[in-house]
Simulated assay, not measured.
Amino acid sequence: MNRDARSRRQVLAAIGSAATAGLAGCGFTSLGDQGDSIDTETSDNPAGPTDSATPSPRTETTTSTSYEACMEPVGCLTFDEPPERWVANDGIYCDMGVALGLADQLGGIGSPRRYYTGYYEELPGVTLDKTNYPALSRGTRMPKEPFYAVDADIHLIDPAWLTNTFGWTETDVEEIATNVGPFFGNYIREQHDVWHTYRYYSLSEVFGKVAGLFGRRSRYEKWKAIQSELTDDIQSRLPDDRVELLLLRPQGIPPRSFFPQYIGDSVSDLQWQVVEVDDTLKGSGIPEWGTRIDYETIARIDPEVIVMETQFADDFVLEESFREFVLGHMREHSVARNLTAVENDRVHAGGINYQGPLISLFQTEQAARIAYPDEFGEEELFDRDRVARMVTEGG
């Protein structure tokens, strides 16, 4: 895209850019949703997926095509044509772009390690090679220079996350939003950050907003139908007795300590909400955040099922080596080998907790198989070809 075209579109996006710049710091006051998504791919349902906000007067009166979406903490963005080049930080928003058929317009990835693409191998025609895209992060830093180099029309990143994680200032956010492209995102993976004082959204809500901004809401509607059917099918077949499950994040190879993961309402736990397991950690007295536990502590609560998840796409929890480096070690450990889950071969790799709309389908299916193998076994619970057509053809 040439700079003149970008400038024209940034004028229309000024409200979002200004809101992002002014509210991204630790002491911001949330704007709230000021409107909803509209696009031209589906004109019969211009409202957002679940929001109750009233569209702005501009949305109701204009006769020209526009692409608008609103989200806390960034406010509203409006484009006269869909953004083209985009970037995202991790597997939540990157996966949204792929689900919308926008992989060829991806300009860069903030943290490639937090984006697992292996599930795409099961979707005919859907591919993404992360090595083809520049990483915006530099270890534990997120400098501004890569943002200029990528030169994206829009950044699907929560600017408040940048200021509170990487030390960006409001001036830094305003600089990139003005000179490169606006920010549009809400950090929805977990719900424990003290700085996240504004609204959290569900995965479906955010995906609907992103889809509207890119003029591809019909793909979102198709995904929502698939996701709803998968959820309804699983929940209609759940046994009366729910399994007790312990969710852990292992530390080290082989793991000798673990971060316990309470199952909550966040996007990272979406699959466990669907399968309605009993969280062994509830009532255990183990702190929810900032603590590690060892095998002795796990033995005290002795869950039926143990699942180990990860933040990183190259982690052994997502590889075949899981059985060697985790199960093999546990079966030889003097305490771990006596755990009920180990004795019954019910220790599992659980996937990555940065999950967007496509990844969540696979991990919800996997969760059902893990929790209730007698009911679901290795059954495929959603149609891969149907999902692939949604991505590649919009149908």
Rank of each mutant, 00 (worst) to 15 (best):
G167F: 06
P159W: 04
R300K: 15
F207A: 01
S218M: 02
L318P: 03
R219N: 11
S43Q: 12
T50M: 05
V173E: 09
I15T: 13
Q355Y: 02
F322S: 02
E60G: 05
F316D: 12
D104Y: 07
G208K: 04
I188T: 04
P73H: 03
G285M: 11
E393W: 03
P57V: 12
V11G: 00
F79W: 04
W272P: 04
D302H: 09
A24N: 02
S257I: 10
P254R: 10
I293L: 09
D104C: 07
I359F: 03
V317M: 15
K282G: 00
C76F: 11
E229L: 02
V275N: 00
R323W: 09
T54R: 15
A99N: 06
V275R: 00
R216F: 04
R85M: 05
P143R: 04
A99Q: 03
A313K: 13
P124R: 11
A299I: 05
I109K: 04
A99M: 08
T178I: 05
N132C: 11
E170F: 00
S334A: 13
F325Y: 14
E324Y: 09
A135R: 08
P112C: 05
V307I: 13
E393H: 12
N344T: 15
T54W: 12
S204L: 03
V87P: 00
E393S: 11
N344M: 05
A152G: 10
P143I: 12
F184L: 07
M1S: 14
E276I: 00
R138F: 10
G22K: 07
H196I: 04
D345R: 13
L381A: 05
V307C: 08
H155F: 09
S52F: 06
L238R: 07
R249D: 05
T297L: 06
V180T: 06
A299P: 02
G283F: 07
G208S: 10
I359C: 10
F183N: 03
E81D: 11
E190R: 09
I188Q: 09
E365M: 08
D315P: 02
P303M: 10
M71L: 15
S228Y: 02
A368C: 04
P255T: 10
S64Q: 11
T340V: 06
T62W: 00
Y262F: 15
G377M: 02
Y93N: 13
D51C: 07
N344C: 02
S257V: 10
E41R: 09
D51G: 14
L281T: 07
K209M: 14
P124Q: 09
L248T: 00
I370L: 12
D385N: 12
A367S: 13
G283L: 09
I370S: 03
D315A: 15
R331T: 03
V307A: 13
D241F: 00
D39T: 08
Y354P: 05
A5L: 13
R189D: 09
S30V: 11
T310N: 03
A149R: 14
T364N: 01
E81C: 07
M308H: 08
V277M: 01
E205R: 06
L156C: 10
L248R: 01
G285L: 11
M71T: 01
R9Y: 02
G208P: 04
D302L: 01
R337H: 09
I157M: 09
S236L: 07
